[in-house]
Design a protein around this nucleic acid. Structure first.
Lengths: 208, 208
DNA sequence: TAGATTGTTAATCGATTAACAATC
DNA sequence: TAGATTGTTAATCGATTAACAATC
């Protein structure tokens, strides 16, 4: 792994796709792959694959390509999957519930360690194997269970308040599904997952 | 509205955010807004706001700014919200169910017109007010209900087959939530919504 | 008019692509 | 060695920003 600094978001965001495709190749018992053929699989030019990977280290072998198993492990390490991040979901509506049951995340090493809802009727219920906590206990539970990442799936008008409480309780990363522009300090990583964008984009291109 | 061609994805993708912020301003009874103050609200530079909007028309008034109501209507038209797109969700798992109940989409003019699942046990059930259709009836129902956009929320290994069937039945846009790289003809608009990317991105930045 | 803010141009910045020497 | 493919450089392409004349 080379440097920590100045690697663009857009580059980092391609790595999960690479990781997943390598997983598939591994399951298909493919040992090695060239930038050329890998690029065709994921839909990018070979040069971009090489450039992306070279940003993080010398993972390839001239004349051969990349060893699937090795490259996958390296990308996993770059992405920090071995860190075992604890995540909490705030807002157990339909979307929160769906994310809570999403198996892919567990496969990548994320541990769903707590879920919360404001509705007194839901507290104590258990979708999956976690009890829904009261919002009143947010700070305490977040600290006790050492939550690193907060997933916000509450209505837009509550999102900033939830974010503020999460950050005050020590959370360092926020994955925001609420339709709201959140303000967070610069040392906090905020990822906005705006589901309407994709659908609007489809509407636009179908219209033109 | 100016030209149809050559407007970048990245520009179009900012419009939904603008639209939503204008909706908020409208509800707060704000009549006009300058690029400067609007930019602060959505988190972009004023020049970018002006450039984005000028791509589609002359919506502003010198010395004043933009009329909130007017600009929102214009952006809505650009994005094609008035078209009344019919959408179908294929795969009524947790995620499909969450999307089916997402009110935001209906607010933007999208109509959920059909849902499908492969599990015989689910067929005939009704989450919301739609009966779950059998996958066997996909082509027939898609054609009968004039589905424009297919939302794929099936397991990755089924996604390509579902996409192929949707396209053969006349669908022109695909919103893909399955972790799979789909191949579609160039006249079809494909939007990939890869939920793991956001979480992986958080993991990366928390690690470095 | 004077003040404010647009639409647009030119300059800057960053990302992708093509090409190739290095090397397994 | 000969063939293949990497890592990297330089060229191209595209997006953002700064600046300002036009104008309400």
């Amino acid at each position: 792994m080379r440097s920590n600094n100045l690697i663009s978001n857009i580059t980092v965001n391609r790595l999960p796709l690479y990781y997943r495709m390598l997983d598939r190749l591994r399951m298909e018992c493919v040992d090695g792959v060239s930038a050329e053929s890998f690029g065709q699989l994921v839909g990018f030019k070979a040069g971009q694959i090489r450039k992306d990977l070279a940003t993080f280290g010398d993972f390839g072998r001239q004349g051969f390509g990349y060893v699937v198993r090795e490259l996958q492990a390296n990308i996993g390490n770059i992405l920090g999957f071995h860190r075992g991040w604890n995540i909490a979901i705030i807002g157990m509506g339909h979307l929160g519930g769906a994310l809570a049951s999403y198996r892919n995340f567990a496969d990548l090493g994320f541990r769903l360690a707590a879920v919360f809802d404001a509705d007194p009727g839901k507290i104590g219920q258990s979708p999956g194997n976690l009890l829904i906590n009261s919002m009143d206990d947010l700070e305490r539970v977040v600290q006790e269970r050492d939550i690193h990442i907060g997933v916000i799936t509450v209505p837009g008008h509550n999102a900033q308040a939830v974010a503020d409480r999460l950050l005050a309780a020590g959370v360092k990363g926020i994955w925001n599904f609420a339709p709201a522009v959140l303000n967070v300090p610069s040392d906090v990583k905020l990822v906005n997952e705006d589901l309407s964008v994709g659908l609007c984009s489809l509407s636009y291109y179908l219209s033109h």
